[in-house]
Structure formats: structure tokens, C-alpha cells
Simulated assay, not measured.
Amino acid sequence: MITLSCSELGLLQHRLCERRHELLAALHGEYGDLAGARPPEVLGPESHPDETASRKARDELRTALARHDFDELQQIDVALARIDAGRYGACVGCGDPIGYERLVAAPYTARCVSCQTAYEQHRVTRQ
């Protein structure tokens, strides 16, 4: 049974939509060159090796940050779909309610603390 009030659900949905908008703006703006939206900065043959290494490290970091933002965006889209389906706030593992405080901290959360812990432990043992 889901225990969120209409106002709590509305607030969480609003936060999800705001964060979704922020992430889309970042992915299209800040990381747009990673997706081919704008050409990357090109270093010439006269570039110093330190500059090339620094550029490579910066590009790897930006790629990792963009991947993280994209993953968060996907989680938000799944959470919004759960809202539309009337299943938001229920753990996808056990079906028990996810605490409101947990949802406020991470509105895209899909599992209760117990199920999330078990999920993470299972992932670690599989690697």
C-alpha cells in the first residue's frame, strides 16, 4: 500500500520534473559535444604532451559525468512512469512503501532501504 498524500506526491513529481529539465539542459548544453551536437575542440600538432594528456583526462571526466547524468535521467523517467501507473512510492522489490524521507532525498528511488541494500550486495558479488 502506498502511503503518500496527494500533496507529497505532487511535490515529488514536481521535483522529478524540475530535475529532469535540469539534466536535459546539461546534456544538451554542457555535454552536447559528446553527442555530436557541436564539434569538439581540436588540439593542433604543435600541442604540448601535457596539454594533450590534460585534455584527455578532462574529456574522460566529462564523459563520466554525462553518463551519470544520463543514468539519473533514465531513473527519473522510470519514476515518472511509476507515478502515471499509480505505483510510485512502492518498492519494486517487495512492494512495501518507500519512506517519504527517502523519496525526498532521492525522488527516483525505486527500492526500500532493505531491498536496495540486497540489490547492491548482489551486484557486488556478481562482479
Rank of each mutant, 00 (worst) to 15 (best):
E51M: 03
P39V: 07
Y31R: 04
A90G: 11
A85M: 03
V42L: 08
L27H: 00
L61M: 09
G10T: 09
Q74N: 09
H14W: 10
L103R: 05
R123D: 09
I98L: 09
D33R: 12
I83M: 03
H14C: 08
A57T: 01
L27F: 00
Y100I: 13
A105P: 06
E41Q: 15
Q116T: 05
C94R: 02
G95T: 02
G93R: 01
Y100V: 13
L65Q: 15
L16E: 01
E8K: 00
R87F: 05
C112S: 05
L24V: 14
H48Y: 02
A110N: 11
D84G: 07
Y88W: 06
V42W: 02
R82S: 07
T117R: 13
A57Y: 00
E30H: 10
H48I: 01
T63Q: 14
S54M: 08
R55M: 06
A53W: 02
A105M: 05
S114H: 06
Y100R: 10
T3N: 12
L61W: 00
C112H: 01
E30R: 15
G89P: 07
A81F: 02
D96H: 11
L43H: 00
A79T: 04
Q116E: 12
L23E: 06
P97D: 10
Y88H: 06
G86I: 02
L103Y: 03
L4Y: 00
Y100G: 05
H68F: 07
C94I: 01
A25S: 09
A85P: 02
D71G: 09
P40E: 03
T125Y: 02
Q75T: 09
